[in-house]
Design a protein around this nucleic acid. Structure first.
Lengths: 184, 184
DNA sequence: GTCTATATACCGATAGAC
DNA sequence: GTCTATCGGTATATAGAC
């Protein structure tokens, strides 16, 4: 019977799947390919994951849980430090950057998960936290640019060490929001 | 014989395809669905397009040509006005916003086209135009945030009239780059 | 826990009649 | 220019042996 707890093989499947998903895309990767890379057969995967969808979902869950927790924590506060919030968001997505990248690049393909609405929801909650409720469009746009741009930096500067990438990315987000930069 | 010139039906196919692609994604839309929406059969599509790929390519071409021309024009100049460049880029992508959205959300899925490299290439050329060559990472990140954020604004404020959206979006991009805002 | 073998379905694309 | 019919391929998923 499939156990929710980690079996050795289960984690090997997840690792192989993530690698292939990152390389060729989720929808473009079949269970046969995942199985072949591990030297097992397709039905073996079904012992560990009830369906293809559940496999994808298991990969996405850590990131989703972490960002949800981050947002909930700040929403519970009565005052928000925008710079700390942006930094926390960067750190969470950077920690799971392969999955973040996979999600961002395949929002449509992954629409069978609740991810599309979920990520849009994150954005609106981040805007509310960063600008306050009912901010004018101009301020909202600057928050969208700040948050979205951070994701783009992770994509385009994927080869840079995080010690360089993190301050550069956060500074760009601060600038978009009109906040003082780190160097200043 | 299939004509390159517009036939009535050819354009109806493109319109139906674009609508379905925007709603459910490119890879998730089959030729059968496109044909059914038009009340014709699948092989009828093959009279107008040699393959599925050619159909997709025909939809993408107007945007690609326009952005390429925009970049080439500015690259030929000896001095660049960043605000004009950003505005031109906004206008081009807004004019073809359904296709832009489709491409951005499915970069991986559309990898069989040259789009992945092409769009990454656009970004680097925009960075070079906006920051000059060999700019430090900090400046490059701000350019990435500015350009990428504009796309995000188009997604998240898709319901706003362009008279509001355009200045708000451009202002956010200017802020990311540290340029003076429109209102100032 | 992993295998062989297979059920079922849909895909893109082509052949050839009208 | 559109049709019917079909090919060859691949997909997810399952049944049942070991």
């Amino acid at each position: 019977m499939p156990r929710a707890r980690s079996s050795e093989t289960r984690e090997r499947i997840q690792a192989a799947a993530l690698e292939l998903f990152a390389a060729k895309g989720v929808q473009q990767t079949s269970l046969r390919e995942i199985a072949e890379r591990l030297g097992v057969t397709k039905p073996a995967l079904y012992y560990h994951f009830a369906s293809r969808e559940e496999l994808v979902r298991s990969l996405v869950r850590p990131l989703v849980d972490e960002v949800e927790a981050l947002l909930a924590a700040d929403e519970a506060r009565e005052s928000v430090d925008p710079r700390a919030l942006l930094a926390g968001y960067f750190d969470a997505t950077y920690r799971h950057r392969r999955i973040t990248l996979m999600i961002v690049r395949e929002l449509v393909t992954l629409s069978y998960l609740d991810l599309g609405e979920r990520i849009a929801d994150w954005r609106w909650r981040l805007i509310a936290l960063l600008t306050g409720p009912d901010a004018p469009l101009d301020a909202q746009a600057r928050a969208i640019v700040a948050v979205g741009g951070m994701g783009d930096c992770m994509v385009f500067f994927a080869d840079r060490p995080v010690e360089e990438l993190r301050p550069a990315t956060l500074n760009a987000a601060y600038a978009a929001l009109g906040l003082p930069l780190i160097g200043d």
